[in-house]
Design a protein around this nucleic acid. Structure first.
Lengths: 144, 144
DNA sequence: TATTGTTATACTCTATAACTATA
DNA sequence: TATAGTTATAGAGTATAACAATA
């Protein structure tokens, strides 16, 4: 069953590549004195003003975890809580100018560092890799 | 500069795919009542008997973090500490029968679940994806 | 009644600094 | 002196359970 073996190799490669990418992302987050979770959260805030529950859902965390995360980020001036105008139970989270700068700087570093991962691939390979990864992400998202 | 744009798209795809993969790995670890860090650590022990410092290096953690991690895992019967026969300062970590079973069961679940991520790719695409990811992993590893 | 968010609690993961034992 | 590992300490991230306010 060569197909099965190919799939195992693909899964192993996905896992190892994810570890390598996550390591870089964690290092960049650390350089900016935030956790990877918080960096990712602020990345979401770049183009969303989500409620607490939406953030939790998106990140795969409990609502109570989100409360603590947002508490600490708010104390550091990285996010603000606003009442949701259409539902008095809900709270909307928005980023601050400081966190926007932080995220933009982190993004530059990520492009630099992960860009180096691509040095040994030809442009055509990069294009195919991008297509396949985008397909995987939408397949994964659809599952959820 | 289309090349630059292509690289940005590739990096974004790498990051999003890594998040999706990490989410699955964390869920599978959680199903087995261990953290992703501990699952990964036990995965290393499948074919290595590393010292504490080697484990820390491999996982990108401090030695003191490793002490705590191994303490908790040892209390749960998932690993054992052995004196290094050639260096009385050093400690070697080995897995137990329980942890071998846990890791093998987790590996099955990971193959199942991440295998589904590949459903919308043709066999040839999977082969190219695997090649590119393996190249990336070795490029990343060489950097370190 | 169901949902949104918070609080209280507890545990894991993580790092820094100071220490012991061995090389 | 330098290295391997541990301990003490502190803080972040995480979940579960119980709760108040609103829908």
């Amino acid at each position: 069953m060569p197909q099965r073996v190919d799939e195992e190799r693909a899964v192993d490669a996905l896992v190892q590549a994810s570890f390598a990418v996550t390591r870089v992302l964690s290092e960049v987050a650390s350089e900016h004195d935030v956790s990877l979770t918080l960096l990712r959260l602020m990345g979401i805030l770049l183009d969303h003003e989500p409620r607490m529950a939406e953030l939790a859902e998106h990140l795969g965390l409990e609502r109570s975890t989100m409360s603590g995360l947002i508490d600490r980020a708010e104390r550091r001036g990285l996010v603000e809580r606003r009442p949701d105008p259409v539902d008095a139970r809900a709270t909307v989270v928005v980023m601050t100018e400081d966190s926007r700068e932080l995220v933009e700087s982190a993004r530059e570093r990520i492009l630099e560092t992960l860009g180096e991962f691509l040095l040994d691939l030809h442009p055509a390979q990069i294009a195919h890799l991008t297509d396949s990864l985008e397909t995987i992400v939408s397949t994964a998202g659809g599952t959820r």
